[in-house]
Design a protein around this nucleic acid. Structure first.
Lengths: 368, 368
DNA sequence: CTGTTAGCGCCTTCAT
DNA sequence: ATGAAGGCGCTAACAG
């Protein structure tokens, strides 16, 4: 007890001596002392809760100003068990898709006064778990993007009581809150568009094996083909993979006259490979991507793709998660898997040879 | 109330029945109880500190496993006053520059077992301050990227005892730890390259007014000109601005035969504008960007630019900050402003008309 | 080696 | 309207 008293004295003296930004940061107790009120009152003023005399309110605010006091969020969250922070676990931080996603999430988070703590798992299930664990108690809820179903589900378990929103493209999340892109529908739309514009040998550059979204898109592609066998080349969602795959395709006996790449970056890689080889797009070969990253409208020829509105999806994810957090125990109520329907955006890369060069950016109706 | 009680019952029962992930998370005390030891021992085992009997260690680990116990990081950091988290405040989250930067930072952070909490301030000084304040107690240190000097310096003040690393391109940070790009040197190199390849009327598309980096680059541009007056058009670092600016330039009586854009995105915008207008690059006009975002090597013509190695810079920033945090009170020792020298990367967009089409990606020696 | 206990900084009943 | 006091979950002396 006596010891404690001493401590306070020291803190007080150093606090009193000037508006020093260094030294030990002021605590709520310092403020209380300086304002001659109890910590409770300070707390009240700062949280705008109960009714407080205008006099004390001013006294407190003055003290706060003089001391450069800023409440310690960590301590606060320990007693309120809220952190006002949401965690995001991504498989990777590379490429325009994820940066757009984070941008959208940040926007929504800021709008709701939440913080965003991001972490990438490099696609590794073990790392995903580690990230999840280390986030416990640090966040009010998390959004997990894992290309592997297992990982996503495990994630939801490890999280314990913390709400988890899964965004990994699988439509069946076992009744967990989720947001997913209609990968199947998108792939089908891509192929149908190619067929409609007269293409007859349509190849597919797929994403990494084992990646859920890659699987579904490939499956959608195959199911939409008419009168031809699937021609599938492996890829991994990177521009380099698209380049390699396109090279392989050009070496085939019967060259395809159209390519549907599982994402835009690979489509771009393919576009470049074709260009370098003197294969003209869209005249000799049409190309369709997926995602509609900003870049897609910037390259020449501009890229036909499936618009996902990535930032919007990120925004939506954060808002939904915030809802889950607020719902608390009732969260069981929300187990819906929200589906995002990509919209086909027709650009130059799939113009029928005859009409090549027409309007570079005409958006078709949404799939839904 | 009754309704709520019912809900809770349900939750509870579901928790009891099996290794339920729900229910209230176990605390260190629960573990201690179940393992028949004191909380101190549990803490010891978990932190691998002191020596512990193998017996108790096992007992603790068992209990931890059975209870799905995960230490509460928030509480821990309250007593250790460490958060193992570093905060990053960016002016914006849009564009490839920042996504690359975050990627590099994430890599370094993960390597050191730190978390990353990001926040954008939309270039607004007030928002930057708010972000800083709200990070207190939540991070061990922060990295601030603010295009405005004032903001950056203010930031360092508001932060109080928390180490702050400034990365806003200003070389003079008043003795604060900082990392900056040699914007002046880069701009000069760009102009000199253009002159060396025979260009005589060199224009500049500058970044937003009031933006420190934009100012320095513009100044560097002007200082390197030989035998011509500066031709400067306003921009704001976006691709659209570059497009507009290029359009303005084409309308001039005496068209420039070269353009140095303050960043790659604007250079790309200009490239497109020229293309649409039928002005050939590099034959009619050469274009140089700044940053070397991944995209620069993907467009056609490939873009000559100043490589900054963004991800590496992000990595470096995090490592330096971690150093500052560890140094603690001795932090005053490190007040150096580390300078990153961009390297000129010559690509197709500045090929002299005669040699146009040569090697698309030859890197020149670094400036340093 | 292990248990006890006092805080870390804040919020929040419970009295007054 | 305000003050006093008991935690939140964990770590770190300080005894045994």
């Amino acid at each position: 007890m006596t010891l404690r008293g001493k401590h306070l004295d020291i803190a007080a003296s150093s606090a009193v001596n000037g508006r020093a930004p260094a030294a030990k940061a002021a605590t709520i107790r310092d403020v209380a002392e300086r304002a001659k009120v109890s910590v409770a009152s300070v707390s009240r003023v700062l949280n705008g809760s109960d009714a407080i005399t205008e006099t004390t309110r001013q006294r407190v605010l003055d003290a706060v100003a003089h001391l450069h006091y800023v409440p310690h969020v960590g301590a606060r969250s320990l007693s309120t068990s809220r952190t006002d922070t949401i965690g995001v676990i991504l498989p990777d931080l590379y490429g325009e898709f994820f940066s757009e996603l984070i941008r959208g999430m940040d926007l929504a988070a800021r709008a709701h006064g939440k913080h965003l703590i991001v972490s990438s798992s490099h696609g590794d299930t073990e790392e995903t778990m580690a990230a999840l664990r280390s986030m416990r108690g640090r966040v009010d809820g998390m959004i997990v993007l894992s290309p592997h179903v297992r990982a996503a589900n495990l994630a939801a378990d490890v999280a314990g009581r913390t709400p988890v929103l899964v965004m990994n493209g699988g439509l069946d999340e076992g009744g967990r809150p989720a947001i997913a892109v209609d990968n199947h529908g998108g792939a089908v739309a891509a192929v149908e568009h190619l067929i409609a514009t007269g293409r007859r040998r349509i190849a597919h550059i797929r994403g990494a094996a084992g990646n859920l979204e890659a699987d579904i898109r490939a499956e959608g592609y195959a199911s939409a083909l008419v009168g031809q066998d699937p021609i599938i080349v492996e890829g991994d969602f990177t521009q380099a993979a698209g380049h390699r795959a396109a090279t392989q395709l050009m070496a085939l006996d019967q060259r395809p006259d159209a390519v549907f790449a599982a994402n835009d970056m690979m489509a771009l890689g393919a576009l470049l490979a074709f260009q370098e080889a003197g294969v003209r797009c869209p005249e000799d070969v049409a190309v369709v991507g997926f995602d509609d990253v900003p870049l897609a409208a910037l390259v020449r020829p501009t890229l036909t793709t499936l618009r996902v509105n990535i930032a919007e999806m990120g925004r939506r994810g954060v808002e939904r998660l915030i809802g889950l957090v607020q719902a608390g125990a009732n969260a069981e109520a929300d187990t819906a898997c929200e589906i995002v329907r990509p919209a086909l955006v027709v650009r130059q890369s799939t113009a029928a040879a005859a009409t090549a060069g027409s309007n570079p950016d005409q958006t078709a109706a949404s799939l839904s």
